[in-house]
Every structure is written in structure tokens, then in C-alpha cells.
């Protein structure tokens, strides 16, 4: 299967003298959903910022669809969409204007945008809010707008940071349904989340970070086996997570 994201020997951080993430090596293939897990400060957000092109690596490379940011900025960026942990919206736009703006930015054909935005508004129960200014929405609704915008762009890689924060159970279910469809359509998903009990059912593989390094990666079975090899007896991702943390107990 085609590799969508390839991260090789990536080290980086805010200061050129002090790296926060060290020698990260992983890849994501089309149709895969990968869970990026770790405690606060483990380096998840820094990794995501590097992939987004918002930070310059100290060393190593990041390729989306075999292109680095330096090869072709537009092609690199059109390869992904991003849903941040805290919704970042243009507050003077209405919900549907936000969707339109995103679709325009990603060059989505107009007919496709019109059709899909209707479906997304219905699926996320936002039809009645389509004309509402995003400034006047609740945090959960703002997050829905972010998610809908990302889904509209239909790139090959979705980068989603803590997607379930602020969402109601209905919206979480809609999001997961959408993500499964996205996966089936051949896009890849990199999702950072602390809700391990939920993502263990949906992600194909996990990358666990601790102090800026990958401490384990693989499918759920691999993570459990990895923890069990260290003398623990675990059956769930959450238990494996605690076990694999330095000094943690399952």
C-alpha cells in the first residue's frame, strides 16, 4: 500500500540547541489510522507541528506523498488537513462560510463542496447552525466545524489532535463513523488522543511517545505483547500504556 507519511530520523524542538523530539522514525500507509499516544509533554504536539510544517526539524525528514515541504509547499500542504485540539476558527465567518473557505483553499470542486457540505452539516447536526457566526458557537460546535472543514478537504492524510475534547457522544459517534469512511476511501489518519479506551477499537496501529522518543509502536496486539514481555499482564491499551511508561505499573 502507498506510504502517505514518512518520518525519518526526525529530531526537533523550539530551540535549535535543545531538541524535544529525538530520532523519530515511522510511516503511515494509505487507509491506516494511527494513534499517537503519550503523556502531556511527551512530544506529541511537537511532532504534529513538525509534520504540519510549522516547525523546522533539526535533523531528519518528513514526506507527505513522497514530497517534503521544501520540494513543493503547495503539494505538501494539500496532502493533509489538520484539526487542532482547541478549535481555531475565523470568528467572523458563519459555519457554512468556513466550510466554503476551506473548500476553496483546498481547491475542492464547487459541486463537490456543495454536496458534501450538506451531508456533513446533516451528519453533525449542524444544519440549523449553518448561518451562525462561529464566534457565537459553543466549544463543541466549533470543534465540529473544524472536523467538517477537514473532512471537506479530502486529503490523503488527516492530522487530528485530541478530536474528542468538547464533543457530545453523538458527535463523537459521527466523527468516528466519518473517520472509518475516510479510512475506507484510502486516506490515512494520524490521531493524537488521551482517550485510549476509545481509540484502541479504531486505530490500526499506535505510536507511543515518552520524553520525545518512540518507546513502542505497532498494532494493539504488539503493544500488549511489548508490555507483557516486560513482565506485566495487560489486556487493554490503557494498561499497556501505563506499563510501558518509565516506572509505570500495569
Amino acid at each position: 500500500m502507498k506510504t502517505v507519511l514518512r518520518v525519518e530520523q526526525l529530531s526537533g524542538g523550539y530551540s535549535p540547541k535543545r531538541a524535544i523530539i529525538h530520532d523519530l522514525d515511522f510511516e503511515i500507509k494509505a487507509g491506516e489510522m494511527i494513534g499517537l499516544i503519550g503523556v502531556n509533554g511527551a512530544g506529541k504536539s511537537t511532532t504534529i507541528k513538525h509534520i504540519l510544517g510549522l516547525m523546522t526539524p533539526h535533523q531528519g525528514s518528513i514526506r507527505i506523498n513522497e514530497k517534503t515541504l521544501n520540494d513543493d509547499v503547495e503539494q505538501y500542504r494539500s496532502g493533509y488537513t489538520y484539526v487542532p485540539e482547541t478549535p481555531i476558527l475565523f470568528e467572523e465567518l458563519t459555519v457554512e462560510e468556513h466550510l466554503r473557505l476551506t473548500a476553496m483553499a483546498y481547491g475542492v470542486p464547487e459541486q463537490q463542496y456543495l454536496q458534501q457540505s450538506e451531508q456533513l452539516l446533516e451528519r453533525f447536526h449542524m444544519v440549523k447552525k449553518r448561518k451562525a457566526l462561529t464566534a457565537h458557537l459553543s466549544k463543541g460546535m466549533k470543534q465540529k466545524v473544524m472536523i467538517m472543514s477537514a473532512l471537506l478537504a479530502k486529503p490523503s492524510l488527516f492530522i487530528i489532535d485530541e478530536p474528542f475534547l468538547g464533543l457530545d457522544p453523538l458527535a463523537i459517534r459521527s466523527l468516528l463513523q466519518e473517520l472509518m469512511e475516510v479510512k475506507q476511501n484510502g486516506s490515512a489518519i494520524l490521531m493524537s488522543s488521551h482517550i485510549l479506551s476509545t481509540i484502541e477499537h479504531y486505530c490500526d496501529r499506535f505510536i507511543m511517545l515518552d520524553q520525545g522518543r518512540i518507546v513502542a509502536q505497532g498494532a494493539l496486539e504488539d503493544m500488549l505483547e511489548h508490555a507483557n514481555r516486560q513482565g506485566h499482564s495487560v489486556a487493554h491499551l490503557e494498561d499497556a500504556f501505563y506499563a510501558l511508561l518509565n516506572g509505570g505499573e500495569a
Partner: peptide
């Protein structure tokens, strides 16, 4: 107004 908007660095527009 949008000088520091993150989307300026994320949207695929040079």
C-alpha cells in the same frame, strides 16, 4: 487581522 492565523501556514496556498 489574520496576520497570525495558523491557517495561513496550513492552507495549500503559497
Amino acid at each position: 487581522v489574520h496576520r497570525y492565523a495558523i491557517w495561513k501556514d496550513i492552507f495549500p496556498l503559497q
